[in-house]
């Protein structure tokens, strides 16, 4: 038996006490889940996507359950970056965890404005969401074209005081190309996957289940796609990768690490079990002990070919 296992990881010069983060949009600002999870235990809290001004999001229904997953079309409702700075960041500052702010926008200028506003704030990294399938303009338009992705990365990087993570969409033909575009634009890390565009029809009402017609699929149903994309993206560029998509337990999280992720995010699983993140951290520790692995970093990308 080994006694001292090391759970710490490092991404773009930022150290994390463990590789388990929460996925943007599933955990609010952290405050709501703070009653269920000791936020000090988490590697990082990743906040809901925030824009330069408040967004009221899509009409309801915004949520539909599907087999082994769910569709959401929240439409990036958020109170705007000013409220985040004045209310949410001071709340998160009380905890010994890293803070990553997810940034959304309709135009290049929107993104740059948010990133610039966050420059002096207690934020460790910025996650640039160019992959939300639920808003009409901006967002995913930047995430589905390699040239546009490289350009927005470069633009945002100019204003960013913190390292930037580009959050990639799985709704592309070649994920490796997108990873390389983020790297070429100067990204410090990438995260994936955001949700897969899907649709559900209620056959009794003969109507769409979501008011937005389409929504983003998440949860265990998407996990094999996510693992494959994390593997491909981590081999296509030299940037560290945050892997996510359907992680429900420690085994799933370890699978992502082996595929090449330096850290993982847990999203939809929080809805099934609000305490799941702490259980995943504990489960990874148990795995390291079971296999007598001293340092979690030796698992990253360690799948044998």
């Amino acid at each position: 038996m080994i006694s001292d296992i090391c759970m710490g990881v490092e991404l773009a010069g930022v150290t994390f006490k463990n590789p388990v983060m929460v996925a943007s949009g599933t955990f609010g600002s952290g405050e709501e889940y703070g009653e269920y999870v000791d936020l000090n235990r988490l590697g990082a809290v990743v906040t809901k996507g925030v824009a330069n001004v408040p967004w009221s999001g899509n009409p309801t229904p915004r949520i539909a359950e599907t087999c082994g997953g769910m569709l959401n079309a929240i439409g990036l409702q958020n109170p705007g970056v000013e409220v985040l700075c004045q209310r949410d960041l001071p709340f998160l500052k009380q905890y010994d965890t890293r803070v990553i702010v997810n940034v959304c926008g309709r135009t290049k200028e929107d993104y740059c404005q948010v990133v610039e506003r966050l420059a002096g704030e207690a934020v460790d990294m910025l996650e640039i969401n160019v992959s939300c399938p639920n808003v009409k303009e901006g967002g995913i338009a930047f995430g589905q074209d390699a040239r546009a992705l490289e350009e927005i990365t470069r633009a945002v990087k100019k204003y960013a005081a913190q390292p930037i993570i580009l959050k990639l969409s799985p709704n592309v033909a070649n994920i490796g190309e997108m990873a390389r575009a983020a790297e070429a634009g100067g990204a410090d890390a990438i995260s994936l996957i955001n949700t897969l565009t899907g649709m559900k029809i209620d056959i009794h009402k003969r109507a769409f289940a979501l008011a937005n017609k389409t929504g983003g699929l998440s949860g265990p149903a998407v996990k094999p796609v996510a693992v494959r994309m994390v593997y491909e993206a981590s081999h296509a560029c030299t940037l560290p990768v945050i892997g996510m998509g359907g992680i429900q337990n420690a085994e799933d999280a370890i699978e992502f690490l082996l595929a090449g992720a330096s850290a993982v995010s847990v999203g939809t699983a929080n809805f099934h079990n609000p305490c799941v993140t702490e259980e995943i951290i504990k489960g990874i520790e148990d795995y390291l002990k079971q296999y007598e692995i001293q340092d979690i970093q030796s698992l990253i990308g360690a799948v044998e070919s």
Binding site: E32, I63, I74, F271
Partner: peptide, 16 residues
Amino acid sequence: EERMACGIGACLGCVC
């Protein structure tokens, strides 16, 4: 009533 995911105010799925 509205469709819910988290039930605790975090996901913004259930708004009116």
